[in-house]
Structures are given as structure tokens and as C-alpha cells.
Write a protein that binds this DNA or RNA. Structure first.
Lengths: 213, 213
DNA sequence: ATCAGCATAATTGTATACAATTATACCATT
DNA sequence: AATGGTATAATTGTATACAATTATGCTGAT
């Protein structure tokens, strides 16, 4: 049993990020440390920490007198996809190059779980495994720079309520693409990984915004 | 006089980031909150806040028992340049599109100061104005996503001690390129801005790592 | 001499107390 | 009624106190 205890600050961050990106807290709403402290039942210290992290990721904006909820706009979504399409295929290719057995196992597991939950039509779990798939690849690249850039971008997209991958057809296709990407990474085929990944992101983009560009 | 008072936490962050990226604190060194608190003469609270931010940018790594200095490696530099070359020209093109008079004025000022300090051979000031030039462009893009990604990347490069733009020939060429980029942005010419910027980054990269790739 | 175990110290995590700043509301004056 | 000023309250910034965990070193037994 080596259960890593998660700090209150981390939990608060998780909850707040979720509540904001999922729309529970509306854009423009004002959050204060005291009220959050009261409503969440923890002291201001962990609250402050979480707010600072959210502020750094531009999910809220600290005004000096409360924090205003910013959330994420459709324009943000487009920018995020633009950046991901420009750099994430390269990151995946690096993963194919630097892969370790342990990471390959973890990636395979993410794919297999996605296939399993696809059958169950459990979209929440599918999204969870989607995060694991992509973040595992970020780690496999062995580049903290790529990881630091891509993790927050992916998290924002992932949790955005409108970005529901609930559309069944896309979900199935997406999982299928993950399977093929996984195989390319496992085989260490950098070029193929790059191309499959670029196509994967293009498809996701087109599905989200429509074919017309 | 509306001097925005800078919080202790911000100052601590600035100082620590500088000390780490400039090499004062060596890679692998262990920082503890108590010692920093003592040596900097402030309580642990602002220290913690600064450490968290540094950790989020992977400049240090929190181990649960002190924070290990990570700094920035040459591999990081390459990754940063890769990403910048992929997305920063687009950001500059957006700046050319969304420019405002006020921002144009600020950008012009940055270029003119650089030209002035180039004559004075004041490399520190040149670097400072280089930061202002690039960060102004990030702001002009009016995209928080691009800005959030690019600002930390540029800061890391900027402060890296080996990345001294002290080489006179490159400094002169760089300032000249800034001037031309500024003119393209002022004119609102997106395509030209994109191309000039791409070339600017390519030149900076080649100067730092040598032509061979 | 070596190793186990326990006491001690060092460190982070959290809560609370206090300071400083800023908004707000109320009251008095015109 | 409008305005200005002042007291009050709300909020963040900082410091400190306390809790919990973990490393460290010492002591004693074999």
C-alpha cells in the first residue's frame, strides 16, 4: 500500500478547475478566498494555492479583490488546437524514439481500457483514459518542455463541457486511431507515429469545428 | 503616482528564478523553505508561493522534503526553440492583425531603445528590451493561449546564462530584424510578419547551436 | 562491528492571527 | 436631493503556530 496522500491544495485545485471548466462557476463570477474556504471546509492556505495555480493557467484572473472566473472560450479552443497540431506530432515521434517497456505497458492499458469502455458506452471513463493516453505520450517524449506546454492545454480541452467526446462515431474512430498510434509507438516507428498523430489531431479538430476552415 | 506595489511573493519568485537560471544555484542543489525564509528575510508563506510557481515551470522539483534545483538544460533549449519556431510566427501574424495604436507605440519604443543600447554596447539593457519586444507581440496577438505558452518559454531562454546575446554581430543583426518585423506589424502585413519572424527565429537558432542541425 | 529500534530533529502541510489596503455604506452638510 | 467624508467591513498579503510525516543519528544488544 503506497497510496500517495493527495494534499488538500491539490484537491481544491482539481475541484475548482473542474467546476470552472465544466461551467458550474460561470464566466465573470467572483470568487473570494474566504467564501471558498467556508464552502469547501478548508482553511484559506490551500485555497490560495489552488487559486494561484488557476490564475497561472488563466482559468481565473486575480484582481486584488477577489478572483474573476475566466474559463475557456471557443477562441481558446481554436488556439489550443492550432498549437497542438503544430507540436504534438513531434512529441509523439519523440515518444516512439524514447519509449520504455513500462511506458509501453501503460499506454497499451490506456488503449485497451478505452476499447473496453467504448463497448460499455461509458463516456466519462473514455475521456479519463483519453487523458491517460495523451499524457503518457507526453511523458514518454522525455521532454519536460513539451510536457509542460501540452499537459495544461490538453487538460483544458478535456474538461471543457462543450468538448464532449460523447458523439459516438467520433469516439469510436478516436479510439481506433489511438490503437494504431500505439502500435506505431510500440514499433518505434517515428515517421509513422508522426503522421498518424497529425491525422488524429486533424480529425479531432474537424469534428469539433466542422470541416470548413 | 500609481506605483503598483509588488508583493513579496513576486519578488521572491523573480529573485529565485534569476538565481537559478543564471547559475547561482547549481543544478541538483536542495532548497528548503526555512533556509530561504531565513536568508531572504521573509516568512515561509511568500517563499512557498514562489517555489510552487517555479515548480510549475519545472525550474525546480518539489520532492516533499525540499526542492531540487532543475534549471534548464541544453536539450530544453532545443525543445523551446523547436516550439517557438513552430508557433511564434503565427502569433506575430496575429499581432499584425490585432494591433492597436498603443501597442504599436510600445513596440516601436522597444525597438528604438534596442537600437540605442546597441550603440552603447549595453547588453543587459538590450536583453531587457528584447524581452519587452517579444512579450509585447505576445500581448498584441490578443490570445491568452499563445501568450501563456510563449511567455515562460521566452523567459527561460532569456535568463539562461549561456544564452548571452552578447555576441555583438548577432545582437546587431537581431535588432535589425526586430526593426523590420516591427515595420511589417505596423503595416498590418500578416504574411510578411510571419516570414520575417520565422527567419528571425531560424537565425537565432543557428547562432545558438551552429548551422549544422 | 553491525544492525535494529527508538528518540530527536527537520521539513512540509495546514490553520489561524494579524496587518494593510480598498470598497461600501451611512451620515452630515449644503 | 446631492455630495463628500468618515467609519466600517471585506478582502488580500504576510507571519506564525501547530500537526504530521520523514529523515537522521544515537544507543544498545548480539
Amino acid at each position: 500500500m503506497e497510496h500517495k496522500t493527495i494534499s488538500l491544495a491539490d484537491q481544491v485545485f482539481e475541484n475548482l478547475e473542474n467546476d470552472i471548466l465544466s461551467g458550474k462557476y460561470a464566466r465573470g463570477e467572483l470568487l473570494t478566498e474566504s467564501k471558498l474556504s467556508l464552502s469547501m471546509g478548508v482553511s484559506r492556505t490551500p485555497i490560495r494555492e489552488a487559486l494561484r495555480r488557476l490564475s497561472q493557467e488563466h482559468i481565473i484572473e486575480e484582481t486584488g479583490k477577489g478572483s474573476v472566473v475566466v474559463g475557456i472560450t471557443e477562441e481558446d479552443l481554436r488556439d489550443i488546437f492550432f498549437i497542438r497540431r503544430k507540436i504534438e506530432p513531434e512529441c509523439a515521434a519523440m515518444a516512439a524514439k524514447n519509449r520504455t517497456d513500462e511506458q509501453i505497458a501503460k499506454l497499451r492499458e490506456a488503449v485497451e481500457f478505452q476499447e473496453f469502455y467504448l463497448g460499455k458506452k461509458d463516456t466519462e471513463k473514455i475521456k479519463l483514459m483519453d487523458s491517460r493516453f495523451h499524457e503518457t505520450i507526453y511523458n514518454m517524449s522525455a521532454s519536460t518542455v513539451f510536457s509542460d506546454v501540452l499537459v495544461p492545454l490538453h487538460r483544458k480541452i478535456q474538461k471543457y463541457r462543450k468538448a464532449s467526446v460523447s458523439n459516438k462515431s467520433r469516439a469510436a474512430a478516436s479510439v481506433d486511431e489511438h490503437r494504431k498510434i500505439f502500435e506505431a509507438i510500440e514499433a518505434g516507428n517515428e515517421e509513422k507515429t508522426y503522421e498518424l498523430f497529425a491525422k488524429h489531431l486533424e480529425n479531432a479538430y474537424n469534428h469539433m469545428f466542422g470541416k470548413e476552415k
